[in-house]
Design a protein around this nucleic acid. Structure first.
Length: 290
DNA sequence: CTACCAATAT
DNA sequence: AATATTGGTA
């Protein structure tokens, strides 16, 4: 009855996302306050990678030049206008869940186990700076619905089109760990594999990826201004300019049980996965690293 | 009081 | 449709 333990461990090992793939991801999500505090209102658009700037009223000031190409809106800047900022009360741009981010999310959930996969924990495990609990909670909610939906339908074949564009979207882009589909472990004790690290770290390495790309799907996701150079026109798949670590999140981690302290992986390897698109799931390769 | 979750709003 | 925000509850 309890051989589970050995089992899950084995499974766990197999499904290991590889530490490199896990921990140190970071996105350049900047918190508004921080940005402001640092005065990063860059006159040169420092566009935040995955954040979509919902600019305020772009009243006028059409930036002139290039009607079509660069739409980087510099929010209020542009030189023009808004001299004063709303100082406090800034809204954070909507987070865009890229396949990469989602992957991280799924991995985190998978490794935490559905049971312990709650927003706060997930958030901490993801270690994506700038990510808030609410961001994760919201996504988690949707993800759960997706899982449920998927359980009910296993029949494959029905769909003729080979793709359920309407059903999956982003979620389909990352393999759902099998055990997710039927969870059976409501109670029982199973030790926690490990507890997230506190994140006490400060690094000042300036690594910058500059532009990375952004080829957004021409078909979906219509407006995006990013500079579209770089093309991988028909290549598909997007990449994001990740990087930059700036940890600022700090909360008490009092969670339970087995205090297996683990240390912070200092790896910096970003997983520039090729984001598989639809099809070809290609789980990650597990890099056996011990 | 903090965090979760489901519902609801944008 | 995808995220955010809110409200009730544990």
């Amino acid at each position: 009855m309890r051989e589970d333990e050995s089992n899950w461990f084995s499974k766990w090992e197999e499904e290991l996302p590889s530490p490199d793939d896990l921990m140190p991801l970071s996105q350049t999500l900047i918190t508004p306050d921080l940005a402001i505090a640092f005065d990063i209102r860059s006159p040169h658009n420092h566009h935040t990678p995955s954040l979509q700037h919902h600019q305020q009223p772009p009243p006028i000031s059409t930036p002139s030049s290039q009607p079509n190409s660069g739409e980087f809106d510099s929010p209020e800047l542009g030189g023009g206008g808004s001299g004063d900022e709303p100082a406090r009360t800034l809204k954070r741009p909507r987070l865009v869940w890229t396949p990469q981010l989602h992957k991280r999310f799924v991995d985190a959930v998978a490794h935490l186990g559905i049971k312990n996969a709650v927003p706060k924990t997930i958030m901490q495990l993801m270690s994506v700076d700038g990510l808030t609990r609410e961001n994760v909670a919201s996504h988690l909610q949707k993800y759960r619905l997706y899982l449920k939906r998927m359980q009910g339908l296993s029949s494959g074949s029905g769909n003729g089109s080979g793709g359920d564009p309407a059903t999956d979207h982003l979620f389909a882009s990352s393999p759902v760990p099998a055990h997710f589909l039927h969870q059976g472990r409501p109670n029982s004790d199973h030790y926690l594999p490990y507890v997230p690290v506190a994140a006490l770290q400060q690094q000042h390495h300036h690594q910058h990826i500059a532009a990375a790309v952004a080829g957004h799907h021409p078909q979906l996701q219509p407006r995006y201004g990013q500079i579209g150079h770089f093309g991988s026109p028909r290549n598909g798949q997007f990449e994001h300019p990740f990087l930059s670590r700036q940890s600022h999140q700090q909360q008490s981690i009092h969670r339970v049980g087995t205090p297996i302290h683990n240390s912070v992986p200092s790896s910096y390897v970003d997983d520039l996965e090729s984001a598989n698109g639809v099809n070809d799931d290609g789980e990650d390769k597990i890099k056996g690293k011990c």
